[in-house]
Design a protein around this nucleic acid. Structure first.
Lengths: 99, 99
DNA sequence: CAATTATGTAAGATTTTATTACATAAAAAT
DNA sequence: ATTTTTATGTAATAAAATCTTACATAATTG
């Protein structure tokens, strides 16, 4: 896993990096748009990927999109990815296509 | 600047990532081996580069090296880099060598 | 042997984060 | 047109994380 995906950033810094309030960041978690890790003590930890995702979310919100819609879009995107990967995996298994 | 160089990580996480105690991490700063940023409130912020550097330091310490020695080695390394860059810059200015 | 290096630990203050609750404007649903 | 839901702010209080300073000490160096 690359640095981009390591959950090491606190919510205050995420707020600074994204321009969102910590209230908003926690709320988007409540709506299941992001999934920070937690320390033993319960402090949230985010990755740069999370930060990027939050910036996307902020833009979509700004465009008048609702969080339930954003979630659906994320699901569609992720489903697409899974399908692609399955297909690629199958092709690879059957035909030994590289990479 | 890439994610690797963004100073966003707290000392506790750095401790976890490096296996060093927070005491050690602060001490290496005192010896001018690393240079975290600070928040307004005074909390230290480190980058993944800092984490890598600390891991190197930990190895050198383990090999019985002293912090003043480590610092000298870092300086030699950085001097080398500066020299290289100056030479490359001059070559570029004179001959227009690309990249 | 005296000085320095490297680290642990403790105390107390400050900063940062967490949870819960109440408030409310705007948008969506009925 | 109401009622409900969404999205966010703010306040209170508790807990977690960090900061600085100081004292202790073993190991190393001069």
């Amino acid at each position: 896993m690359s640095y981009k995906d390591r959950k090491v950033i606190n919510i205050g810094m995420v707020s600074e990096l994204t321009g969102l309030s910590v209230r908003q960041i926690r709320y988007y978690e409540e709506r299941k748009l992001i999934f920070p890790n937690r320390t033993e003590g319960g402090t949230r930890k985010y990755s740069f990927s999370d930060v990027e995702k939050l910036i996307d979310i902020a833009n979509q919100i700004e465009d008048g999109m609702q969080s339930s819609e954003i979630k659906k879009m994320q699901k569609r995107k992720s489903d697409r990815k899974v399908r692609d990967e399955m297909i690629r995996g199958q092709l690879n298994a059957v035909f030994g296509i590289r990479k």
